[in-house]
């Protein structure tokens, strides 16, 4: 019934769904899980505050990936944090420049920023420049971001989402203009660039925790708690796999390959 080779994946997936539902239900009933302090997310308010004090804009990039690709979850995490940042810029009357590379992210980002400004009672402050589509070509987009940062000298540059080779250019250009840089991605190959060049880096799952951390929404907090169960299970699978393979027993390997 289940496609060959995907049976174990399905079991893991189904287990995670059950745990997610259980932890979200518990969180809704008031058993909110504790989430450790995440410096990168904590620094967002400080970064927007700094840009406000300096009278400079906040520059935001929610990744470069379309919302209907395998990197969509990262784009959505970036958009969730954009909602929070837009709420802050609306509250403090700070200029916001959101750079968009994926055409189908443009209307979503526009709507998120619009909702944040409406919620803050600042609908009249909305401008098309707040969410700018630059280019869907990698280096044309990077060049446009560099130009904006060099012209506008943002006080804060926040980049959360899926990035590729342009990572280093964007974050280093932001650092050179004197911005506080907060970056996040779960692409393992790009994380070192962010770690080397950014002031704060959201590594892997930290960016997915952003929405829960910033909004304190019980459903989202519950789902973060469920991830810990998944990590324990994943670690156990790795350990059992390592022990059985070291002992020359392939039965566990064959089981997870099913």
């Amino acid at each position: 019934m289940i496609t060959a080779g995907k049976q174990f994946v399905f079991m893991f997936f189904a287990f995670m769904i059950v745990v997610l539902l259980y932890r979200m239900d518990r969180a809704k009933k008031g058993n909110l899980p504790w989430i450790r302090r995440i410096a990168g997310l904590q620094a967002i308010d400080e970064a927007v505050g700094r840009a406000t004090e300096l009278g400079t804009p906040v520059f935001y990039v929610p990744g470069r990936t379309e919302i209907n690709t395998s990197g969509a979850a990262q784009t959505m995490a970036g958009l969730e944090i954009l909602g929070h940042v837009a709420g802050l810029t609306a509250k403090y009357d700070t200029e916001l420049i959101t750079a968009i590379a994926a055409p189908n992210v443009q209307p979503v980002a526009e709507e998120i920023v619009r909702q944040a400004y409406v919620a803050a009672g600042k609908a009249e402050a909305l401008k098309p420049e707040m969410v700018q589509f630059l280019s869907n070509e990698q280096f044309a987009f990077a060049a446009a971001c560099l130009a904006i940062m060099n012209r506008e000298h943002p006080g804060a540059a926040i980049m959360v989402g899926e990035f590729q080779a342009e990572t280093m250019m964007l974050v280093e250009a932001a650092a050179q203009t004197g911005a506080i840089t907060i970056c996040g991605t779960s692409r393992a190959i790009q994380i070192p660039f962010f770690v080397a060049a950014a002031d704060y880096t959201l590594i892997g799952e930290e960016m997915f925790a952003g929405g829960a951390y910033l909004t304190r929404d019980p459903n989202k907090l519950g789902s973060i708690a469920a991830l810990d169960v998944g990590k324990v299970l994943g670690t156990l699978i790795i350990l059992i796999g390592a022990i059985t393979m070291t002992a020359g027993n392939k039965s566990f390997l064959n089981f997870i390959k099913k």
């Binding site: 995670m16 990262q74 959505m76 995490a77 997915f208 991830l227 990590k231």
Partner: peptide, 10 residues
Amino acid sequence: MGAALGATAT
């Protein structure tokens, strides 16, 4: 692993 689980939950 953390990123994959985070993406699944999202």
